[in-house]
Amino acid sequence: MTVALFLEQMLNGLQLGVMLFLMAAGLTLIFGVMGLINLAHGSLFMVGGFVCAAVAAWSGSFWLGLIASLAAAAALGALVEIVVIRRLYDRDHLDQVLATFALVLMFSEGVRFVFGSFPLYLDPPAFLSGPVTLPGGLPYPAYRLAIIIAGLAVAAGLGLLISRTRLGMQIRAGESDREMIAALGVDIRFLYTVVFALGAALAGFAGALVGAIQSVQIGMGEPVLILAFVVIVIGGIGSIRGALIAALLVGVVDTMGRLLLPMLLSNVMHASNAAGVGSALASMLIYLLMAAVLVFKPKGLFPANA
C-alpha cells in the first residue's frame, strides 16, 4: 500500500465525516432542544439533493441549485414543523418515530411522483471539477476537498452561532430548560420552528453537496440518516462538539476499514475470499465501534450536560 493511497482514503474518510456531521448536527440540535427523534431528517437530505440537481439542470448553475436546495429544505422543514412535528413534542418517542416514519414514506413517494423513479445527476461547478495537487504531490479531486472545507466552515459557523449569538443563547437555554425560557418571554414556538428549519437546511445542504459525488435518487438519505444516528450515539445526544468528533471518527473508521480489512485478511486467507469477508466485516466496523463506546460510555463520548 502506498502512502498516497492511504492519504487519499484518509481524506475520503474526512469528507464522509464532514457530511455525517451536517446531518448529525441537525438531528442532535432538534433532539437537544425539542426532545424529538426525527426520522424524516434523511428525507430533507434527499430533497436537498433533488432540488439542487433539478435547479442546476434547469439554470445551468450549480450555485443557484445549492442556494435553492438550502431554501427549499429550510422552507419544507419549517412547513413540516408547523403542520406535523409541533403536535409531537408532548408525545412519547414511539409516536414520534411512527409519525416521522410516516413522513419518510410520504416524502419518498412524493419525490418519486414529482421527479420520477430515475436517478438525477449533478455536476460539480466547472472550476472544482478537476483534481488539485496537494502538498507532497498527491492529486485529489478538488470538489471533495471543497466539501471538506465547506463542511468544516459550516461546523465553525454553527459553533459561533450557538456560542456567540442571541439565537444561540436561546437554543442553549432551550436545551437546559424549556418551560423557563418560555416563562421569560421567548417565543418558544417560533424558536422551535427556527431550530427545525436550521437542521433541515443543514441536511439539505449536505444532500446537495453529496449529490454531485453520487447519483441523486430516492432513499439516498436513509443510509446517511442511520449513520448519523450512530454518530449521535457515539458523540452523545445533544452535543454539537460530540457530533463533530464522532462524525469524523465514524467517517475515517468506515473508509479506512473498507481499505485495510481486505488487505489484512489477504495475509491469512485466499485473496478472493479476503475481499468478500473483508468488505463484509468492514461494513460492520462502525457498529462495533458504537457497541464498544456503549459498553464503556453508555451516554456517549461527550454527553450533553442536560
Partner: peptide, 24 residues
C-alpha cells in the same frame, strides 16, 4: 444499557449492521 431515544437508535443501528453484513 441505555433507554429512550438511545435505545431506538441503537437497535436500528444493529439491525442495519446485520443488513449490510447480509448484503456484503
Amino acid at each position: 444499557r441505555t433507554s429512550g431515544v438511545y435505545f431506538i437508535m441503537i437497535t436500528l443501528a444493529f439491525a442495519q449492521m446485520l443488513y449490510f453484513f447480509a448484503i456484503s
